[in-house]
Structures are given as structure tokens and as C-alpha cells.
Amino acid sequence: MEVNLTLLAACAVMSGCGVYLLLERSLTRVLVGLVVLSNGVNLAFLAASGPAGDSPFWGSADPEDMSDPLPQALVLTAIVITLGTIAFLLALAHRSWQLHGHDDVQDDVEDAAIRRLALDDATSDSFGLSTDGQEQDDPVEDRQ
């Protein structure tokens, strides 16, 4: 099969940019990342469909010269689905902005708890001070 290198290169660059943006904190940037990424992926479908040819209408051309219509149909479906998802994410970002005044993706409960533990440790007097290799872990006894 012939492969269109330009398409593949564009696909790679767009996917790379999309993934980079996905790693951002702001939901709007994540969203832009998804748009770029999905367009990159759609290009991969076009690359998979082989070289371009005549429009695939019955009787309009020799079937040998037609381009493969199936990947185009698939891409169309993918585009519609992505559009819906993007719209939904936009609504989420807007709601998040309404609620918090920003649209940053927030830490999950577990991460937040771990982060607070780390902060507690950093500000704690007793942390790392035990000399005998054992941590003091019974402050209840100390209080008595």
C-alpha cells in the first residue's frame, strides 16, 4: 500500500501537540488538546484509506480508480462524536468556572489527602527528629 508521508507527519505532529496540551491543568487547554489530538487521529484514518481517487459514486468512475469511502465514513462518525464530547467538556469547564472561578482540573480526594500529609510533614517539628531509628508514634501516651 502506498502511504502518504505528509499526512502521517501531520498526524504525528498534531497528536504530539494534543498530548502535550492534555497534560495541562486548565480544562480549556485540555479541551484544545483534545481537538488537536482528534484531528490528528482523523488524519491517520485518511492515511489508512490509501491514495486519493475519484469520488466513489456508483457508475461515475471505474471502481479501480475510486478512493476508499469507508474510512471517510468512519472519520465523519468520529468527528461528530468528538464534537459532542467537546461541547460537553466546554459546558463542564463553564460550570467549573461558575463554581470556582477557574477551570483547573482538581486533585482527586486521595491525592489531596496525600498532599496535605506531605505539607504536615514539612511543617511538623517532630518529623525526622527521632534519633534512635524509631518514630514516636504514640502521642496519646505522651499527653498523659
Binding site: 487521529v41 491517520a44 489508512a48 468512519l74
Partner: peptide, 9 residues
């Protein structure tokens, strides 16, 4: 989608 494109190709 990437998997689908790869499979189809």
C-alpha cells in the same frame, strides 16, 4: 480510533 485506523490499514 488509532487502533481502528491501524487495523484498517
Amino acid at each position: 480510533l488509532v487502533a481502528l485506523a491501524t487495523t484498517y490499514a
